[in-house]
């Protein structure tokens, strides 16, 4: 790793895995943004991508497969002083956790979600994932007859206020998008294309390098219709960049009577208030 503050050593990833680029870039971004490790909460579910929080010097919560988002948003709800970042895979984010993905977009809690999307199940050794290409062949030799899940299109349809895609092999681009996502007030999704060197022999580093291109310099990220159209562009050419970003009231901002800036965990209900309330039942 490149910087000391967020530096840790050993990982359980395969040599050449796209996750190295992601964790190294993220560590650099966190350092650039001058976070203290104790201010950060990195949350993961289960899978190779979800192990990222184990390798970064910060608070870490490794929950259940598919369940990173509920734990992450609730931690933020009760302690808004934490910067909460979810790192977890495509199976965790869009498969097992699909329902949480849909509904946490609607909540718009101020967290960042980096979905490491390698279009394959790595830790269980090569099954198709929600984002696998149709007719891709998994390790059992079966053709994937399901249509690929479209994270950005679905996020936008559900009302996401920040939706972006980047590629782990383009570290400069990834760092820029990560920073914007972390700064964004509200739920921010970044779908990060990354190669799985062990099991995905089609969507390789070379494949993504050849097919991805950056959204144009004059692209208007505040126009939902354009964002919806461009998010459907996925084939020979795969656009990367911030597809959509708007400011909408966050979960906390929508409830000013409850969230006044002091984190929930620092407030207590007084016994007097409760006693007064009890008297209403007399």
């Amino acid at each position: 790793m490149t910087n000391k503050t967020f530096h840790t050593t050993e990982t359980a990833w395969c040599p050449g895995c796209g996750n190295y680029d992601i964790v190294n870039t993220l560590a650099g971004v966190l350092d650039d943004m001058r976070f203290k490790p104790s201010e950060l909460l990195l949350v993961g579910g289960i899978g190779q991508a979800a192990k990222l929080n184990q390798y970064v010097n910060a608070n870490g919560f490794s929950g259940l497969h598919g369940r990173a988002l509920p734990a992450a948003v609730a931690a933020k709800m009760v302690n808004e002083s934490l910067t909460v970042i979810v790192n977890t895979g495509d199976g965790d984010s869009y498969g097992e956790g699909g329902n949480h993905f849909l509904h946490n977009i609607r909540r718009n809690v101020d967290i960042t979600h980096f979905a490491h999307d390698n279009q394959i199940y790595g830790l269980t050794k090569g099954q198709t994932s929600p984002t696998s290409d149709s007719c891709s062949v998994d390790r059992t030799g079966a053709c994937n007859l399901s249509k690929p899940f479209q994270p950005l299109l679905i996020a936008l349809a559900a009302g996401a206020t920040f939706a972006a895609r980047t590629f782990s092999g383009n570290r400069e681009h990834m760092a820029k998008v990560m920073k914007a996502a972390i700064r964004h007030k509200g739920y921010a999704l970044v779908d990060i294309l990354q190669p799985c060197v062990s099991f995905n022999k089609v969507n390789t580093f070379g494949y993504y390098k050849e097919h991805t291109y950056e959204l144009e310099g004059d692209y208007d990220a505040t126009d939902l219709e354009t964002a919806l159209l461009r998010s459907m562009e996925y084939g020979p050419k795969i656009p990367i960049g911030i597809f959509y970003q708007v400011e909408k009231p966050t979960y906390h901002q929508q409830r000013p009577a409850i969230y006044d800036g002091t984190p929930m965990i620092d407030k207590q209900l007084s016994q007097d208030t409760l006693q007064t309330f009890l008297n209403k039942f007399a």
Partner: peptide, 18 residues
């Protein structure tokens, strides 16, 4: 959104000190 979310939310909140 479902009871799975409910318990995992509660555990996230608990971890964070509530």
């Amino acid at each position: 959104e479902d009871e799975i979310a409910a318990i995992n939310m509660a555990l996230g909140a608990s971890y964070a000190g509530a």
